[in-house]
Design a protein around this nucleic acid. Structure first.
Lengths: 230, 230
DNA sequence: TAGATTGTTAATCGATTAACAATC
DNA sequence: TAGATTGTTAATCGATTAACAATC
């Protein structure tokens, strides 16, 4: 096992996208897939796809490709998604509702069993088939069936309190959508989701692209499409 | 300018998190910040923060730290966020509503000016202060004031049609939250947001952590906390 | 002065790219 | 056979880590 911090492995982050495509293809009753097909879908180089497939340890057939079902099985296995992962959602706002409606989670073996909020106006209502429970009852309600993961979708100001609560109740893994860093005891693992990271990437691409257009207007030697598509 | 594809630069993705922290500190009327403070907040190594600060090109004062306002200015400048970026949102579902409520966007100079949907039940309603417009009127409504970015928050099955529409209307940058790959003409830049990537990361950390616990139970030479915090 | 912090450089590690070998 | 695809290896590039120099 690697000693380096496993904080942002691009290969692992690509896996759900592969999985999504493969599930779609299986739905269309396709049997095999080639790296070319996956690379085009992902908009990445052929060799990256091959390396990723080597990583999950699947062998293909030359001139035919890989078995879709085997790839699905192996990716799930690689990510530890072969068995159901139970999770609770804290925060029944718009983002929470969006996660509850994310269809692929069920394919990933990720099950958001219950929803908590502190807002009296929300408690008792039903969102996407789940009744919203009072966060005050959190300990009691999860005590018998401890979820693997707590998904925190509350405002930044409330997030630390929620984290303290779920950790004290016994949750050891947190998926944090609140835009703050959480302090947790050693042994608790937090995955922070910074949505704006994608915006930053797009902004920098935009900036470079526009600089290129400006430059290209002054020199005739290059053109625009060769830049964006290499 | 680098020739390599700028697809997933970790440094750029960290910028919004720094920015968020720095904005909070400025709000608290703090003047300076040290790399130690930022590294602790971000849960990363000191030297990563220093490299990132070198990247945006800010000089500090020894024994004092960096000027918070200057850091904010420089990060915005680095990301091209010094001027307002105009964007339209397509898809007024739960995820769209969540993005409309993301407070930090205004600090980032990112302005979601208008919202479109195809659902008659939503058209005309107001979500977080924005009236939802009919997607049929998209061309007409954006023709005078072309937005920089289109944020696509519709279902996977509708996403390609929406992309075709916004591209034909003249939009050149897309932030895609739909869980599919979009085909666009050369010159149009798409940033795809795969929320489940974070779940994959957490799942793998979970798997490793649990394997470690199992191993640790059999051998007395190591303990758990030393693993998770190194 | 001592200590804390920035600044700089080298080493290491991992991810991507490229080229080609193998084979169905 | 020819062509398409997987499989493998080496080269390159970039990000992280580590160590220490500089200096307020």
């Amino acid at each position: 096992m690697s000693n380096r911090k496993l904080s942002n492995s691009p290969a692992i982050r690509r896996m759900p996208a592969y999985l999504h495509k493969l599930l779609m293809m299986r739905n269309e009753n396709k049997i095999n897939v080639s790296t070319t097909e996956l690379a085009e879908y992902m908009n990445i180089e052929l060799s990256v796809v091959r390396k990723d497939i080597m990583l999950i340890g699947v062998a293909g057939q030359r001139r035919v490709g890989y078995d879709i079902c085997e790839l699905i099985r192996s990716i799930k296995n690689y990510l530890g998604w072969q068995d159901t992962i139970s999770a609770v959602l804290i925060g029944a706002g718009a983002l929470g509702a969006a996660l509850l409606g994310y269809d692929d989670f069920s394919h990933y073996g990720f099950h958001l069993s219950s929803v908590f909020d502190s807002d009296p106006a929300k408690i008792g209502t039903v969102i996407r088939g789940r009744k919203v429970c009072d966060i005050k009852d959190f300990r009691k309600l999860v005590s018998e069936n401890m979820p693997d993961i707590a998904v925190i979708c509350v405002s930044g100001s409330a997030a630390q309190d929620v984290a303290d609560l779920v950790v004290s109740a016994g949750v050891r893994y947190i998926w944090n959508f609140a835009n703050v860093s959480l302090r947790v005891p050693a042994g608790v693992i937090v995955q922070r989701e910074v949505i704006a990271g994608g915006l930053a990437m797009l902004a920098v691409k935009m900036k470079q692209d526009r600089q290129f257009i400006r430059t290209a207007n002054h020199s005739e030697t290059s053109n625009h499409t060769s830049h964006t598509r290499r």
